[in-house]
Amino acid sequence: MFNRYKRRWQLSKAKPGDGSRLEQFRFWHLLSRSLFALDLADESGRPNRYEVDVHHLRDSSSAKRPAALYRDSVQVLAANLPVTFPVPGGVIEVAVSQYGVKRMHHVTDDGRARMLRPDPRSLEGRRARFGQRFPRTSAVIGAVGLVVLLVGLAGTLAVVAEQITRVEVVAQHVGTFTSPIHLPVWATIALAVAGALAATDRALRLKSTWMAD
């Protein structure tokens, strides 16, 4: 029931587009824009290309909405994020995190989901191409990134637990906890930077997790 209401709410966020033409992706858009495409046939069997354009520097207060759906390069819908765009035979679910796109999937009426194709000139497209050309290296990068996130999570939880058990009321009931992890400043900064890079890499592969967010 919750998912049904969530879907209905996100569908209601999609508003009619302004009919503008899709702007071509340029290299200076690398850090501020994501573009994904999907080819679908309409009820008559005519093929259409649907593209979702996400501008990361826009939010609900911007003059233009951060996400837009284009059909054959013409804007048909626009919305704040997260949003669900209706398309023939299903929907396109779009969501972002602080590190990039975390959901860009076409979900059919029978529940099957597939990721849209990233524009080859975008960061997501470049990361996908790197993974195709160097699959082993890509897998190693992904594994190392996951380890970094887990280590960062463990360190954060240990520090939080130590701070909580310093509260007198808590200490009286559960005792105190001393974190076994005490990193020097340089190591803390290095781990934070590595964690941000790992989270960004997962976002570029649309594999964001709650740890990265």
Rank of each mutant, 00 (worst) to 15 (best):
F130L: 15
F85L: 11
V159E: 14
S138G: 13
L149S: 15
G90L: 11
G131L: 02
I164R: 12
G152Y: 01
A95C: 01
A128L: 13
V140G: 02
G111T: 06
V160Q: 13
G155R: 04
A78H: 15
V151T: 13
R71V: 10
G155W: 05
Q163W: 11
T137C: 04
R114D: 08
K102I: 09
D109Q: 15
M115L: 07
L123V: 02
L149W: 05
V87W: 05
T165E: 08
M115N: 03
D72H: 03
A95E: 14
Y70A: 07
I141V: 15
P88R: 02
R136W: 05
L146S: 15
R71H: 02
A67N: 07
V147N: 03
V159G: 01
L69M: 09
S122I: 02
K64V: 12
D109G: 14
N80V: 08
Y70L: 11
T137D: 09
G100M: 03
V147K: 01
T156D: 08
M115V: 08
V83R: 06
P120R: 13
E93N: 12
L77I: 06
V159I: 08
A128K: 11
H105P: 00
L123G: 00
V91P: 00
T108V: 01
G89M: 10
L77D: 08
L69G: 05
T108H: 02
V147W: 10
N80T: 10
P82A: 07
R121Q: 15
V148D: 06
S73K: 13
R114T: 14
I141Y: 06
G111S: 03
A158Q: 10
T108M: 04
P135I: 11
A79M: 03
L150P: 03
Q98C: 03
R112Y: 04
V76K: 12
V140F: 07
N80D: 15
S73N: 14
S97W: 00
E124I: 00
V74F: 07
Y99P: 00
P120W: 04
V140M: 06
L153Y: 10
F134M: 13
G152S: 09
V74K: 13
R117E: 15
R127M: 10
G125C: 12
V76W: 01
G155E: 12
D109V: 12
E93K: 09
T137S: 03
L123I: 09
R121M: 12
L69K: 05
G145S: 10
V96H: 02
L150Y: 09
L81F: 05
Q132I: 00
G142N: 07
L69D: 08
L146E: 14
G125D: 08
E162K: 02
I164G: 05
V96C: 14
G131A: 07
G145I: 13
A154L: 15
R112W: 03
P120N: 11
V148C: 09
P66M: 11
A78S: 15
E124M: 06
L69T: 04
P118A: 13
V151F: 13
R133E: 14
R127V: 06
G89S: 11
T108C: 02
V87F: 09
L116P: 13
F134S: 10
A79C: 10
V94T: 04
H106D: 03
R112P: 01
I92E: 01
S97R: 00
V91I: 12
G90V: 07
Q98M: 08
